[in-house]
Amino acid sequence: MARSHPVVGSLGPYVFAMLAILSIWQLAVVALAPPPSILPSPTLVGQTLLEEMSSGALFVNAGISLARVSVAWVLSAVIAIPLGVFMARSRLAERLIDPVIELFRPISPLAWIPLAILWFGIGESGKVFIIFVATFFPIVLNTVSGVKRVDPVLIRAGRVLGCARQIDLFWRVIFPASLPSILVGLRISFGTGWAAIIAAELVASNSGLGYLIADGMEILRSDLVMVGMAAIGVIGVLVDAVFKVLQTRFG
């Protein structure tokens, strides 16, 4: 029984879902016999995956995409967390900044791609800019709500226990109390950043997983496109799993 083994038990549903998708896919290829450029067979995609892995191209491109997201995401966090704290602690700041954020938030980061290319060209800074836009708002908003929702009685406890200065109170009470919510923002934003980098690389790049996919399309290699897509999914799940572990440790 899967129940007897915790790891197998938790992976069971994953394996089952993967097998189901692969079976339906294989059945469709057998029944419809499409040209490989339209729908390659799972085995062909598997072969391509192995090739891309053994040549290292997949890891290089995945690494480049991850690095771009990470740099922009860290930059975003460095600005968004203090801004969120400031907004949560100052009524005036919130009333001034909140409308601006509400106006920019609904604009998809992808809508910034044309301007990013015009402003920064197709180099690294344009992509960092797009990921910055994509990751900024979830971090700000979760920081604001986290800091605002700190239980007032904890703040009082901090003050009667000697946190006389605001700065002590912040580092010893307010920040740790709002950390779980900030971590949620960081996790969500990494996801939105990861989705956005692929789009940015699709349009203007010569490296990264997005480029791998765009390149596959241009040379009619759907198997390569699918390998790129699978890598995006797997890395997304892995990164999210790391955040979940962090969240249970600090949450």
Partner: peptide, 20 residues
């Protein structure tokens, strides 16, 4: 004039810091 460590306080809902 304000809260101080001179005047300790015990709250009904404990107010322990859950991260510590």
């Amino acid at each position: 004039s304000g809260p101080d460590i001179d005047r300790g306080m015990v709250f009904q809902d404990y107010a322990l810091f859950p991260w510590l």
